[in-house]
Design a protein around this nucleic acid. Structure first.
Lengths: 236, 236
DNA sequence: TACTAGCCTGACCAACTGGTCAGGTTCAAC
DNA sequence: GTTGAACCTGACCAGTTGGTCAGGCTAGTA
């Protein structure tokens, strides 16, 4: 007989699930200099992996094991940097929210509605193209009634939306665009542009299984802009 | 010492999680006549509960315990009617897909683009209002790369989309609408109308915490229709 | 009334979950 | 070199998960 203690089950340990394809954040970190570099590299690797897993499965469906695996670190190490799954999620959402708000600069800095709307729609389309994971995390969270980010919606997003709606309302009052309701227009822009991130898989499938090429996407961007500009009474 | 067998843990049984607020499907069924009625009533109760839980949490996040609880039946009974969580999910998606496709009748039966688009947009908006759960289940699934409904996307949705795109392309070719790409227009209609279901929580929050009233929603429906009609060169 | 096919469910299980922890390793400062 | 703070991780745990099953219950028929 062997000498294994009787209650030791033959289950595989947690760290056995580190995949072969893992980006080996640890090795990268060790190549960099200093402990600060190690912390920075590992945190970034974990945050990137978390964003991708949360986008794929939502908060409930995501597992810390899979996040650790994609980040190339043992699960215990993930919990060394981020004490709980929720803390990790909040950090991911923080980053997404900031990127989003920054895209809206044109609405503040440009007075001509045609130019401002064109730039804003283009910026949002580009974000959907280059940074689709963030949009998916946000959409999943809001669809599930935002149990973890309700404070964002009630404070920062509410204020942001009110400010931009005021600009659009002024344009309409001054007769520079057709008299559309600002919120309806904003929602249409958000919905349409984010559709290319959130429903990217469906769009790819309906494009014959091929992701939209850069040329196709550029054309779509212009078409979307044209329809919306005409929709508010402007000439594209 | 007591007589309990040593490996019997004192964990609470599964059926203890039937909540007080459960709609008591069992009682309803027993009031109806016959075993066929029992089966029908229980299946419908479970499907309705499943749709709501899948909409709230996605496939991975949903638990059969919660579905059974919302349906008012013990978990074991749920598995009597639906052998696996996946089988239940497929039945839910089947129903959603059928409702969706039926809403597109106007595009087939009406030749005038202004009337056809108006009716289609109105039908999709009404669906988002009256049946938001379906839209959420679909969105969650597609966002997570549709691992369970890819066959729908590749066959039925692809054919459906191609047919309706042909109609829109013909309108554009005949100069009855502006020369827009059919897919871009369809995606914009889907994205905008479904936004009022999928992002309903965000819209409510930005509406001061109040759900859009019937009057507000009717106004939004007209505004959305007007912007899109103008967007394709029609007079609303 | 007796029978039985279909309906119902408490108790159970193996697998998996988020999170912990003791004990080891590495690095920068002295 | 020595020190100690920061980093790392295999093994572990209590709670939860989807799913099973033996055995009881009930409606409809003969």
């Amino acid at each position: 007989m062997d000498t294994t203690r009787p209650q030791d089950a033959p289950n595989s340990p947690d760290s056995a699930d580190v995949g072969v394809e893992a980006p080996a954040a640890g090795a990268t970190a060790r190549r960099a200099r200093g402990k600060a570099a190690i912390r920075s590299v590992n945190e970034q690797a974990i945050l990137a992996a978390a964003e991708s897993v949360f986008a794929d499965y939502g908060f409930q469906g995501a597992t810390t094991r899979l996040i650790a695996q994609r980040a190339g670190v043992p699960k215990a190490n993930l919990h060394y940097y981020f004490p709980t799954k929720l803390a990790l999620y909040r950090r991911v959402v923080d980053r997404i929210f900031q990127v989003w708000l920054d895209a809206a600069d044109p609405l503040d800095t440009i007075d001509d509605p045609r130019t401002a709307l064109t730039r804003y729609i283009h910026a949002k389309m580009d974000l959907s193209r280059q940074y689709p994971l963030g949009s998916k995390v946000w959409a999943t969270e809001v669809m599930h009634r935002a149990p973890l980010i309700q404070d964002y919606l009630e404070t920062r997003l509410t204020e942001w939306t009110a400010d931009r709606a005021a600009v659009i309302d002024r344009w309409a009052r001054e007769g520079r665009i057709a008299p559309v309701a600002a919120h309806t227009l904003l929602y249409m822009i958000w919905a349409t542009t984010q559709h290319y991130a959130d429903f990217g898989h469906q769009i790819t499938t309906l494009n014959g299984g091929q992701e939209l090429s850069d040329a196709q996407f550029a054309r779509v961007k212009d078409e979307v802009t044209a329809i919306i500009l005409r929709g508010v009474g402007l000439v594209p």
